[in-house]
Design a protein around this nucleic acid. Structure first.
Lengths: 210, 210
DNA sequence: AACAATCTGGACGCAATAGTCCAGAATTGG
DNA sequence: CCAATTCTGGACTATTGCGTCCAGATTGTT
């Protein structure tokens, strides 16, 4: 039989595969996908070259799995604060976490999904499809939170959760781009603050007693 | 004398250099900087390999000049509508142009500055510096327009032009990222529309006669 | 404990790409 | 019109990085 990847990995194999994906993900975030060599991945993961080709048919497949890993990571992390979103101040807390992570030491100011999206959208349809769904799901998390707020009477009926969520995600992504280029979190902070200010303008204030 | 680049080019030389930069810029926009080979640039520009090394010491220098070319191009183009910005509807017209260009056939949905910023910020300090100034100047164009609107009584005194301009640029950049990933201009359209809606919330409506 | 299947290590080959070199064409000045 | 300079064309080299191979170590099964 010619060597074929197994559908079932032992725990050791799974651990190695995970190490490879994590090492690749880190390097690709720091240096970009194209600039990350398989050799660097091998060194950082503490494994050897052939393991890459045991677990992945080629670099492209590895990149796809890195994208999927990042998507799981981001959506899982975002689900926690966003699924219980019920007020504007909840959104502000979420913003603070985003900004803190953006400027975290060792980080790189860019968004792990946004950087891959920009670099790979034109070259790899599979990665683009994965990221497209990820951004849709992310936006949906925010949109649903805003819908709940509207239903609860926190926001006015004319607030459009989908469009507001699009603004928030765009402000986050654009804020990352600007933060990366000026190596400073203030753009993402200000952009998200203003976006949330816009959401606030739909807040239903206690109607004047009349 | 060992061959040194001349400080003064003849018109022919300048034309060739410009063709090289434009060809490189187009390819780098479409496929990314790293994925663009010198050979592709040679073919598309209709010149030969040694011309690259006559006009540029290496690929990195070419990339830097491509970045400068893009910056000149974008700032020149943006200056026209933004320098005479005097009303919210002017901002809306500007948005329509941005969206139209984003979805232009042959285009690529991404922003010519944003894509380079994301791909190169971590690898090339010189390019990052160029783009940093470009984004600052771009934001300043918008900020000054909003300041004029405020001075003219179009916007309320509590409108903060710098922060609003940051939101607009971030919405534009983030909108490009989302548009690129879903191959559709609606995200950038909606994000900019909402950002402008936020600016509108600072509009000074005619005070109630009292 | 012995055997088979699964997984690992590093050496190797090959293709692609950045960068070099030089002969000669086009252009400019006397 | 001739010579010097500026610029161009394409062949060439060295390097880098992707992907292959196989001997042997590790793990699980009877």
């Amino acid at each position: 039989m010619c060597a074929m990847r197994r559908d079932h990995l032992t725990s050791r194999g799974a651990a190695t595969k995970a190490k490879l994906i994590e090492a690749a993900a880190d390097l690709m975030l720091m240096h970009g996908v194209a600039a990350t060599t398989l050799d660097e991945i091998r060194v950082r993961s503490g494994t050897s070259k052939s393991q890459l080709y045991w677990h992945f048919p080629d670099k492209r497949a590895l990149v796809l799995e890195v994208a999927q890993y990042r998507v799981r990571q981001v959506l899982h992390r975002e689900q926690i604060p966003l699924a219980r979103l019920a007020s504007v101040s909840g959104l502000e807390q979420w913003k603070d976490h985003v900004v803190a992570r953006c400027g975290a030491p060792g980080g790189v100011y860019g968004c792990v999904l946004g950087s891959m999206a920009t670099e790979l959208s034109e070259q790899d349809e599979d990665v683009r499809a994965v990221l497209k769904h990820a951004f849709a799901a992310w936006r949906e998390l925010i949109s649903e939170g805003l819908s709940r707020m509207r239903a609860a009477g926190v926001l006015r009926a004319d607030a459009d959760p989908d469009r507001l969520a699009t603004l928030v995600i765009a402000a986050l992504q654009g804020g990352h781009v600007l933060a990366q280029v000026q190596q400073d979190t203030s753009p993402i902070d200000h952009a998200l603050t203003e976006a949330i200010e816009h959401v606030k303008s739909y807040e239903l204030t206690a109607p004047p007693s009349a």
